[in-house]
């Protein structure tokens, strides 16, 4: 195995040294210059994400748990997967009123409830680190308290977005926040519900991941 490693690297080194390559400068100006002002950013994010079937729910810091519950009740959602150890989770469970969808905590390793996760969960709610105007994308970094599958397996994904956490480009978000200094286990951009066009280029939503993505904008 390491034999191949050394042979491959040796070959590459010899090839490169025989014909060194001087690459052109990387000029990031084309990304740096992509700018939208405050109001335009959110408008653009909504427009781009709605174009790929994302739904939006506008609410406030004070009201969001109640608004989320009302929304899910109206949709006939049976249950909601949430991270109980997060600040958002605490707000949810304290504000949740009886008679709404059942709150299901993601509190243990996935192995303990895989079957239910894949077969019995209607919706999951996560936070986001913000959104990107250029492409209409949410930035999601799963954590031990808010695991990776919450935004993937339930049929509906609700994503909380702070209305002031907006970036112009993916590049801006990662450079300003110095992602390169320490990447998490998994970092995601999510730009809509799961989709496919593999059958005669006809768009269909919800092929493997969530069928619906609801962005909850918190002002």
């Amino acid at each position: 195995m390491s034999e191949s490693r050394n042979a491959i690297l040796g070959k590459l080194r010899a090839g490169r040294d025989a014909h060194p390559l001087t690459p052109p400068e990387s000029d990031f100006a084309v990304l740096r210059n992509k700018r939208w002002d405050g109001a335009e950013r959110l408008e653009r994010i909504k427009r781009m994400m709605e174009a790929v079937h994302t739904e939006f729910l506008e609410t406030t810091e004070a009201d969001w748990p109640a608004d989320v519950q009302a929304f899910l009740t109206a949709q006939g959602t049976r249950n909601l997967l949430f991270g109980p150890a997060t600040e958002v989770g605490a707000r949810l469970s304290s504000a949740w009123t009886d008679g709404g969808p059942e709150l299901i905590p993601y509190a243990d390793r996935v192995e303990t409830f895989k079957e239910r996760l894949f077969d019995g969960i209607d919706a999951g709610i996560t936070t986001t680190l913000g959104a990107i105007a250029d492409t209409g994308s949410l930035i999601v970094w799963p954590t031990p308290e808010e695991p990776r599958l919450m935004s993937l397996v339930p049929h509906m994904h609700l994503a909380l977005l702070r209305a002031d956490a907006l970036y112009d480009t993916f590049w801006q978000a990662m450079t300003e926040n110095r992602w390169a200094d320490g990447m998490p286990t998994n970092a995601l951009l999510i730009s809509g519900p799961s989709k496919t066009a593999d059958i005669e280029q006809t768009l269909a939503y919800g092929v493997h991941g969530p069928k619906r993505l609801v962005v909850v904008i918190v002002r």
């Binding site: 695991p147 998994n186 730009s191 989709k195 991941g209």
Partner: peptide
């Protein structure tokens, strides 16, 4: 729809 950036396997304390 997804940009998936993976930098490590499940860490201590992570649930999936």
């Amino acid at each position: 729809t997804y940009v998936n950036m993976i930098s490590s396997p499940r860490k201590e304390g992570e649930k999936d």
